[in-house]
Design a protein around this nucleic acid. Structure first.
Length: 217
DNA sequence: GCGACAG
DNA sequence: ATCTTGTCGC
């Protein structure tokens, strides 16, 4: 974590500097190992978890949970600075190297087009996508009620992501490009990873893992 | 100026 | 994120 920003001004400067490194096209073959990342909090204590699932079976093959303390407050637009340090530490402790990071938050659907998924992708060089429960920037038409339906997430006239219906009649999940993946591919991944519930299995398993890590460990 | 604002 | 039980519905 060399020269990690401390202030909002510094953090924004980092985003402006790294945003140009984001790659919005598909790179590499279809991933086999996909990771889910999430962080849970209890005051200033936190637990970050990265779980790795086999994309074919959706079975967990590896996981790493690290505990620590917050070093940056939650500021809309600077969310990554709060979670990235702990998530990178967890990623380093994995035995299996994931080929896709499914992040709990936005990728390009961010005010400066550099959300958590872009940040983690650029720093690790691993393909990444954002799968958020709510929008941050952008508006969209209502996708059809059937699973698989999508609607462009538009910020002005720019498509920054997609509202994806992962199950019939459930609220959409907001998908956006993080790094080295195209938007259509990102949407395919999320649909594949959510065969039964609204959220991708990667997110569900990671959410449980970090909550457990907050208590036990 | 005022409200909204990923997790 | 987190505070928080039961309850309505498929």
């Amino acid at each position: 974590m060399p020269s990690w920003p401390t202030t909002a001004v510094e953090a924004i400067a980092v985003q402006e500097k790294l945003r140009g490194l984001v790659e919005v096209v598909d790179v590499g073959p279809a991933p086999r190992y996909v990771a889910g990342l999430d962080v849970a909090y209890d005051g200033d204590r936190l637990a970050a978890a990265v779980v790795v699932l086999d994309r074919g079976t959706l079975r967990e093959v590896d996981r790493a949970v690290v505990r620590g303390e917050t070093t940056f407050p939650y500021v809309p637009g600077l969310f990554a600075f709060r979670e990235v340090p702990a998530l990178l530490a967890a990623l380093e402790r994995l035995t299996t190297r994931p080929e896709l990071l499914v992040c709990d938050g936005q990728g390009l659907a961010h005010p400066r087009r550099f959300g958590l998924a872009c940040h983690l992708g650029v720093l690790t060089g691993i393909s990444a996508i954002g799968a958020a429960k709510t929008t941050f920037v952008g508006t969209h038409a209502h996708p059809a009620p059937e699973r698989g339906a999508t609607a462009d997430l538009l910020d002005g006239d720019e498509v920054v992501g997609a509202a994806v219906r992962t199950q019939d009649a459930v609220k959409p999940v907001y998908v956006s490009v993080g790094h080295r993946v195209s938007l259509p591919t990102a949407v395919e991944h999320v649909l594949h990873l959510a065969p039964r519930y609204r959220l991708p299995e990667t997110t569900r398993v990671a959410d449980r893992a970090c909550r457990e890590g907050l208590q036990g460990g």
